[in-house]
Simulated assay, not measured.
Amino acid sequence: MDYELAIENAPDTVPGGTGVLLVHPSTGETDRIDTDFLKSDTDHLLVISTRTTAREVQQKLEYYDVDETKADILDTLSVERGYSRRPSDHVHYVSSPDDLAGIVDITREFLADNEGKRRVSLDSITEMAYYADEERAMEAVEEILDLLAEYDAVGLFHLSAEVHDEEAVTEFQALFDGVVTLSEDGTVYADF
């Protein structure tokens, strides 16, 4: 199964099982790339957010005209920060961004429970590494990439380049089928 990519300077389509790493400056405006990826050619989508709450994710999806009826959201912040939570069939929670096993489990459940074209967005690996550590974050990313391959889904994973040393960025890049780099001036480079 092929998926439209809708990312500037990247291939028009990628096969199911493809993981794409979005490397961006910490001030980079990634919402446009993320939401274009999510709203293209998809039946179900999962947004794993380690940076913002479910409510903020819902506002972003609404603002960029992503069909929210197709969306599941995994909020990793609200429990730890003591925010009010409204669990529903489409909003899931884990205790904190370092509950990597919980993140992987909910991703697996989402992929197993939904059929058709499925997309996963993980924003961001950097926050997972901040709360856990780089090695554990890398292991969790590898597990999610394996799930994408198993279920013929695709994923977009965010990484803030300035926060990690060059060696770590290179190690993360090596895990992915494609790397999209967003420069400070908004130019998009893609390597597949």
Rank of each mutant, 00 (worst) to 15 (best):
H44F: 15
L46A: 07
L46T: 05
L46S: 03
V47F: 15
T52I: 13
T52A: 13
T53D: 02
T53H: 05
A54M: 05
E56S: 11
V57G: 11
V57H: 08
Q58V: 09
Q58R: 11
Q59K: 15
E62T: 12
Y63H: 12
Y63I: 03
Y64A: 02
V66Y: 01
V66I: 06
V66E: 00
D67Y: 08
E68W: 09
T69A: 07
K70M: 06
K70G: 00
K70C: 00
A71D: 05
D72A: 09
D75P: 01
D75H: 03
S78H: 07
E80L: 15
E80N: 08
R81M: 15
G82T: 06
G82R: 10
S84H: 10
R85I: 14
R85V: 13
R85L: 14
H90Y: 13
H90F: 13
H90P: 00
V94A: 06
V94W: 03
V94D: 10
S95G: 09
P97I: 06
D98C: 10
D98E: 06
D99I: 02
D99F: 03
D99V: 03
L100N: 04
L100S: 07
L100T: 07
A101Y: 02
A101L: 05
A101W: 01
G102C: 09
G102N: 06
I103W: 08
I103T: 05
V104Q: 01
I106R: 10
T107W: 00
E109G: 11
E109I: 11
F110Y: 13
F110D: 07
A112Y: 13
D113I: 07
D113T: 10
N114G: 06
E115C: 08
G116Y: 09
G116T: 08
K117W: 08
R119N: 11
R119W: 09
R119F: 10
V120P: 06
S121G: 05
L122H: 12
L122T: 07
L122C: 08
D123M: 09
D123G: 06
S124N: 11
S124D: 14
I125S: 04
I125F: 09
E127P: 05
E127A: 12
M128T: 11
M128R: 09
A129C: 12
A129R: 01
A129V: 11
A129D: 13
Y130F: 12
E135T: 01
R136V: 03
M138L: 15
M138C: 13
E139R: 14
A140K: 04
V141M: 05
E143H: 03
I144P: 00
I144G: 00
I144Y: 01
L148I: 00
A149W: 06
E150S: 03
D152A: 03
D152T: 07
A153K: 00
V154Q: 02
V154D: 10
V154S: 02
G155K: 04
F157Y: 14
F157D: 03
S160P: 07
S160E: 13
A161D: 14
V163N: 01
H164S: 14
D165S: 04
D165W: 04
E167M: 14
E167R: 10
A168T: 14
V169A: 02
E171K: 15
F172C: 08
Q173T: 12
L175D: 11
F176D: 01
F176A: 00
D177K: 01
G178H: 02
G178P: 01
V180S: 12
V180R: 13
T181N: 02
T181Q: 07
T181A: 03
T181L: 01
L182M: 12
